[in-house]
Design a protein around this nucleic acid. Sequence first.
DNA 1: GTTAGTGCAAACCTTTTGCAGCTCT
DNA 2: AGAGCTGCAAAAGGTTTGCACTAAC
Lengths: 176, 176
Amino acid sequence: MPVDSIKGSLREKGVRLTRQRELLLELIDKSGEHLDAERLFQLAHERDPRLNRVTVYRTLKLLKQGGLVDELDLMHYGGDQHYYETRMKQEHAHVICLRCGKVEEFFGEPLQKLRRQIESHFGFQILLARTEVGGYCSHCRSLRAREMEQAAREAARQAIVEPNGVGPRSRSKRPA
Amino acid sequence: MPVDSIKGSLREKGVRLTRQRELLLELIDKSGEHLDAERLFQLAHERDPRLNRVTVYRTLKLLKQGGLVDELDLMHYGGDQHYYETRMKQEHAHVICLRCGKVEEFFGEPLQKLRRQIESHFGFQILLARTEVGGYCSHCRSLRAREMEQAAREAARQAIVEPNGVGPRSRSKRPA
DNA sequence: GTTAGTGCAAACCTTTTGCAGCTCT
DNA sequence: AGAGCTGCAAAAGGTTTGCACTAAC
């Protein structure tokens, strides 16, 4: 149970286990999702309305500095805030669909290999590592393909109605 | 010359090549370092005092959306701003020393392998990828080792002077 | 009993937006 | 000519800080 090992880590450092910290640790640990500070605050505030947003930030900073949670930004899908996860599992990459926001986790040997190579190549001591990948998930890829076809059909239809382009809107308007 | 290919890319999309954009592109391209928006603004402002900070942000956003520059955060060494680099070279990982701030770039096959595995494993289409690693570079590792020894000696000396700890300052104060 | 931790308000830093005027094509 | 771009000022979003009070050890 990661919460307990985190608590142990904190106690060893002489960090006090306050009511607020107990609650935040529990929420971070049991939540499957990747929480950002605001979301964590919302959840905590529901259970303890006295708990302040600032305490959330201070606790996250503490955990981050202690290497107990990792900070992600999931390719800034959804804004510039940070997301957090406990450092329970093996190292993994985060794969974010830029269309639907789904986040997948990828474990696999290239990550370990990368780590080992960097350490030996530079004589570097790795403390934190993070790999984030953005693009389209398989589901959104097919949706997009359909959309593109659709758009192409529309364009073709337009071309028949307006054979040589009526407005000055002939270039520009990138499909992205 | 990457600037020119970027300019071409922009022209194709019907994006205007203004005086400001020309300057910013040149600065991003020729600067070896990883610039953040503020630094880029400073450099640009030196050469063209009329250029506004907002234009820097708008240009970076444009280039980012067009896939012409990549956004990094270098493990937030130095703050929460973003850093930018042209997408010239092969994909690479950024290796940041958390003590001295030096940034190394790591090329190597695990990165390509990782990419291929993620694409095939999830049927995912990768548009952006980024790997950032934080820790201590070889130079700082040896400096730190020396510091630790030093601290240990100090502590030992203290222990002789105050055999059973005088103040309540006996634990806590993590060395980090 | 101490010192670390909390809440509150206010500041901070980075980035975005609304709008009027300018400029590239 | 006219849409796209810029500058300015102001706002927004996320996070940090100063300070007096509270609570964990």
